[in-house]
């Protein structure tokens, strides 16, 4: 009997970890694409939070999950476009532009979300394969999720494959590693960077929508609570590799959920102190991966954050 309860708890924690991790998976994978093309967009938090309110307001208006996701993708990309115009076309400082995007996004989403607090989103569609969902352990862990969890995994696989195995991926990496050489070879550096930035925005928007449509599912002002920044740290942790970003995000999901389950596990720690855990863990992880500075520099795209000036 006790054995079963323990199993249930473990399965619940793992499922909870996947749910907590999915927004991070989406946002970090998107940012990873942008950074591989040499664009450092610190506006992930802003794009996520605008995606969250866009998705939420769309689902309240239409009741359709598909339209809500579309709205989140469009909103996230529109925010990314703002950044791209500033940082790529007008050549503004990328760090400052990203910060501006985050502040603007937090303000815009609060303004947009005025009438939406207190409402709740309809249940998000789940995968239902006849019979499989009822299997013990595996049923809940593998077959029981909402569709976005599977979509996020598919997107990680697609990005990993595209970056490593396709011509487009090669061009993206070339632009990120040495934009002058890529330009000399005739690749449209700025256009490729625009594309990568927009992919990053679309995925950050999806990640935000996961929060307001599936995870909570409510609209709360500033509900991203730093997840965009954690996603940025995950990209560094992952050494700019998609599968490692996925693993990192799941690890973080685990930490977040352990904090929620700590009461059930009989730990008596102040809730406010426990809430610090994901942020402290992010710092610890950053320190751990940055200690070997040389390796970090070898992994980082060489032109990350550098503006491009066409010379001919």
């Amino acid at each position: 009997m006790e054995q079963f309860a323990l199993w249930d708890l473990i399965v619940n924690i793992l499922v909870g970890a996947m749910i907590a991790a999915t927004p991070l998976v989406l946002a970090a994978t998107g940012e990873l694409v942008a950074e591989r093309a040499g664009v450092l967009n610190l506006g992930v938090e802003g794009m996520m939070v605008v995606g969250a309110i866009a998705g939420f307001s769309a689902v309240i208006a239409t009741g359709s999950a598909a339209l809500a996701l579309l709205a989140a993708v469009v909103a996230g990309s529109a925010m990314a476009l703002l950044f791209a115009v500033l940082a790529l076309t007008l050549r503004a400082n990328q760090v400052a532009s990203g910060l501006a995007l985050t502040m603007f996004g937090l303000g815009l989403s609060a303004l947009w979300g005025q009438g939406y607090s207190g409402l709740s989103a309809p249940a998000f569609p789940r995968l239902s394969v006849a019979g499989l969902g009822d299997l013990p352990v595996v049923g809940k862990l593998v077959f029981g999720h909402d569709l976005l969890v599977y979509l996020s995994l598919a997107l990680v696989a697609a990005v990993a494959w595209a970056l490593a195995r396709t011509r487009l991926g090669l061009v993206v990496r070339a632009v990120g590693e040495n934009h002058d050489a890529a330009y000399t070879l005739g690749y449209p550096v700025i256009a490729v960077r625009y594309l990568a930035t927009l992919v990053g925005g679309a995925m950050a928007g999806l990640g935000g929508a996961y929060l307001s449509l599936v995870q909570t599912p409510l609209w709360v002002e500033r509900m991203t609570a730093g997840r965009g920044w954690i996603a940025l740290a995950l990209v560094v942790f992952a050494a700019w590799r998609p599968w490692r970003a996925l693993a990192g995000a799941y690890l973080f999901g685990g930490i977040t959920v352990l904090q929620l389950h700590s009461q059930a596990l009989g730990l008596k720690v102040d809730a406010q102190l426990l809430a610090m855990l994901p942020y402290l863990a992010t710092i610890a992880v950053l320190v751990a991966v940055s200690r070997e500075g040389v390796r970090l520099r070898l992994n980082a795209p060489a032109c990350l954050g550098k503006p491009f000036y066409a010379t001919a």
């Binding site: 910060l99 995007l101 502040m103 603007f104 609060a110």
Partner: peptide, 14 residues
């Protein structure tokens, strides 16, 4: 809405 101030400030920086 009070959030309008934050939008204003973000636009300034943009």
């Amino acid at each position: 809405p009070s959030a309008a101030t934050a939008v204003f400030q973000g636009m300034f920086l943009f």
